[in-house]
C-alpha cells in the first residue's frame, strides 16, 4: 500500500497551483501555462507507470492475454 505516490502527485498539484498563481500575479501568464503543463506531464508519467502495473496484474489474474 504505497500511499506515498498519492502524496507525491498531491505535492506536484499544490506546487503547480502555487507557482501558477505566483506567475500570474507577476504578469507572466505564458510561463504559468508552461509550468502547469510541466506539472501535468510529470504527474501523467507517474500515472502511466501505475496504469501499466494495473494492466499487467489484471492481465495476469484474469488471463486476459
Amino acid at each position: 500500500m504505497d500511499i506515498d505516490l498519492v502524496f507525491k502527485i498531491a505535492g506536484i498539484g499544490i506546487l503547480v497551483a502555487v507557482i501558477t498563481q505566483l506567475l500570474k500575479q507577476t504578469g507572466r501568464d505564458d510561463i504559468a501555462m508552461i509550468a502547469a503543463i510541466a506539472g501535468l506531464v510529470i504527474a501523467l508519467m507517474m500515472i502511466t507507470n501505475l496504469i501499466a502495473d494495473l494492466f499487467d496484474s489484471v492481465r495476469r489474474v484474469f488471463e486476459l492475454h
Binding site: M1, D2, I3, L5, V6, I9, A10, I12, G13, I14, V16, A17, T20, Q21, A36, G39, L40, A43, L44, M46, I47, L50, I51, D53, L54
Partner: peptide, 18 residues
C-alpha cells in the same frame, strides 16, 4: 486550483487500492 491534477490523484488512488 487545478481540476486536472485532482483527476490524476483520484486515478492514482483508485489504482493503488486495486
Amino acid at each position: 486550483y487545478k481540476p486536472e491534477m485532482a483527476l490524476q490523484i483520484s486515478i492514482a488512488a483508485g489504482i493503488l487500492i486495486i
